[in-house]
Design a protein around this nucleic acid. Sequence first.
DNA 1: TTGTACGCGTTATCAT
DNA 2: ATGATAACGCGTACAA
Lengths: 348, 348
Amino acid sequence: MEKVTIRDIARICKVGVSTVSRAINNHPDINPETKKLILDTIREYNYVPNNSAQNLKRSETNTIALLTKGVGNPLFAEMIETAQRHVLGKDYTFVLQQVEEEENEIEAAIRITQERRLKGIIFMGGSSSPDPGLLKRLTVPYVFCTVDSRIPEDLTGWGIVAIDDEAESYRIVDYLCRRGHRRIAIITAYAHDTSIGKLRLNGYVRALKDHGIEYAPELVVQMQMQGGGSIYTMQNGYERAQELLRSGTEFTALYAISDTIAIGACKAIFDSGLSVPEDISVAGFDGLDQALYYHPSITTIEQPMNEMALETSRMLFRLIQDKDARLRRIFPASLREGQSVRNLLPDI
Amino acid sequence: MEKVTIRDIARICKVGVSTVSRAINNHPDINPETKKLILDTIREYNYVPNNSAQNLKRSETNTIALLTKGVGNPLFAEMIETAQRHVLGKDYTFVLQQVEEEENEIEAAIRITQERRLKGIIFMGGSSSPDPGLLKRLTVPYVFCTVDSRIPEDLTGWGIVAIDDEAESYRIVDYLCRRGHRRIAIITAYAHDTSIGKLRLNGYVRALKDHGIEYAPELVVQMQMQGGGSIYTMQNGYERAQELLRSGTEFTALYAISDTIAIGACKAIFDSGLSVPEDISVAGFDGLDQALYYHPSITTIEQPMNEMALETSRMLFRLIQDKDARLRRIFPASLREGQSVRNLLPDI
DNA sequence: TTGTACGCGTTATCAT
DNA sequence: ATGATAACGCGTACAA
């Protein structure tokens, strides 16, 4: 019952351990009969090779890890499944590692790489400006998914799969402007955020400017770091929108840099007795199912999650083949119209 | 730069490997000075012990795995983080393993246990009637979280953390009845489902009976297995509700056995030109944030997710201490009123 | 307190 | 086609 090893199987089949190993690993030089015998007894005795021993011995481990903060993030959930399926399809082991919010993901990656002899790493939604010093110590190929991280010029063996956050953000704010909105509030990440939050804010600012609308600081609300978790929560959206409403600042549209925040904001608007989009229009970002099924459906920027996840995995395998490559793939997103934005202009 | 081993550290420090090992593993018998020297050089050379070698050698691995289908399930997302935090706090390694929908989770558990020498396993949302034969081969303690699985009497070393699905389901249907609803449709799992879907359906049937309402087959809609993913999706809720509405069957309330389904159903109702709760009342189950922030907030049964996740982890550690134990903890859930249910009775 | 040497279970090299 | 055996990197008796 307890831990049966390769030697047990060998003894039972009256063969050498190497023959058993050959049977397991589909080596060519083996008699089909003995192979069948071995495979049968392996099944019978429920023998499973000890992964630690395999990895210890093997030069190549064939495992890739996906590191992310917050499996809970609905944007990532689907992408994780897609990536996992692709990796498993290539007969690689897939390790899903949740890294704590406070932890440095690159450090975690270095540690896990050494511990588990990884072949490659996927960062889902990591930092946009990872520490170059740490990055240099990461000796296996890696791909950043959903964020266009700045990686030092001299490094190789990395990839990026993302959208153009600033341009897409510009697009949706432009959409609001074209519908006559001029007082557009935004719920964005905090001031010193250097990541997607900053990019999406840039897009907002640029779109306003192009429409001749002056930037109004009182319309910019920053999210608060909550204890231990992600900041992209419905609760955060709710609270920030509530502040905004109570401040008395006038605005006709509210742009939240994620759909979860947008949903929270909608609820705050409804709870204050106003309605969406009649009183206030709301736009989100990401293209979550949640936004689609919300009532009203939230107009948002839809990221091609499945394609991105697939490309992330594919890219990583390409990098494993060619460790000198630097790959970057920026996907086009699309504006998905819901019912959460009101057209203030008269029909023409 | 490349793979530095314990021997390298030993050579550099001019000590034996065992001394280095002692320094790493906080053994008592070691000179504080040499320990400091060793630890410093370890940092300097970025030495990380090879996990495979450690596990191969160690009798106890101190790692516990959490197996789940669909990290995407928002009900589990939060619980996973809670459990992970607790496990890491105990200085155990935490492995998060996503098991494919078609895969048998117990088989996966057996495999991973042997591969990684696990100390214990958490099943998040597994089958309610796992194969006893397979269970017998699972040699480490395990806890089923969120589902009160039937486990053979003669087995030990297992735990269960769940709610009383039937009773809680009864409670919310009773709530609907007490508000004057008599034509209550239900969206439930498929017919041969033996898991929570069945229990929640039982509660529905019993509550109706207690209120003298006859069971009407045309009000029971079963979900369809979708390609590859979970059935508890908003899309599934949307489609099933749509069928129901188109069938012409009359009903004043709709009870969905999960909040995600309820949300999808709400959207279908809105899209058909009706409204919630004025035309149709909707009730869900689980107590997701999503249900709270929906408009209208969905009345639901709230599972105490954090407590359950914490207890799951605690229970597993208790089982690791005492492998002969059988533990079962049923948590009380609570009915969380939203705005999605209309009272059809006159106020008294 | 410290170092030497063996074995964990597997794969790969080399004989046979 | 098959079997003996040497690593892989680490922990730990046991000896010093």
